[in-house]
């Protein structure tokens, strides 16, 4: 089964990250990259902060774009991992290793719908 691990990390997580200093920050990034190399991880990316987001909707054939993320949440989306795992427990175990989870953020684990195309 495939799971999308969505990293919700608001200003608290950023503040903690900044307070780590250069060495600490390098180490933390190393953790993120190491997770990318875990068997089963199909892809991952850090996203630019929420204020760089643009939200797109189509109403009556008109494309409407608004500045900012879809939800004005403090806990905006900071990144993701796409993970192939046997079951939810395996996905939860990986999610728990994502640094943001222990720094005040939260990881949403969402199963991916597989269209056999």
């Amino acid at each position: 089964m495939k799971y999308l691990l969505l990293i919700h990390s608001g200003p608290d997580v950023w503040a903690r990250y900044e307070s780590l200093g250069e060495e600490g920050q390098k180490q933390l990034l190393g953790e993120y990259f190491a997770l990318e190399d875990e068997p089963g991880v199909l892809g991952s990316n850090q996203l630019h902060p929420a204020d760089t987001a643009t939200t797109v909707r189509v109403e009556d054939g008109q494309t409407l774009t608004t500045d900012g993320p879809f939800i004005e949440m403090k806990e905006a989306l900071g990144g993701y991992y796409l993970y192939e795992a046997d079951d939810l427990d395996a996905a939860i175990a990986l999610a728990a290793r994502i640094p943001a989870a222990r720094m005040g953020g939260a990881i949403e684990v969402r199963p991916v719908v597989e269209h056999g195309r």
Binding site: M1, D86, D87, L88, D89, A91, P111
Partner: peptide, 14 residues
Amino acid sequence: RDAGIPFAVPPEHL
């Protein structure tokens, strides 16, 4: 079913 909650006795550490 959809989230793949395993049908198992949890491993030792859990």
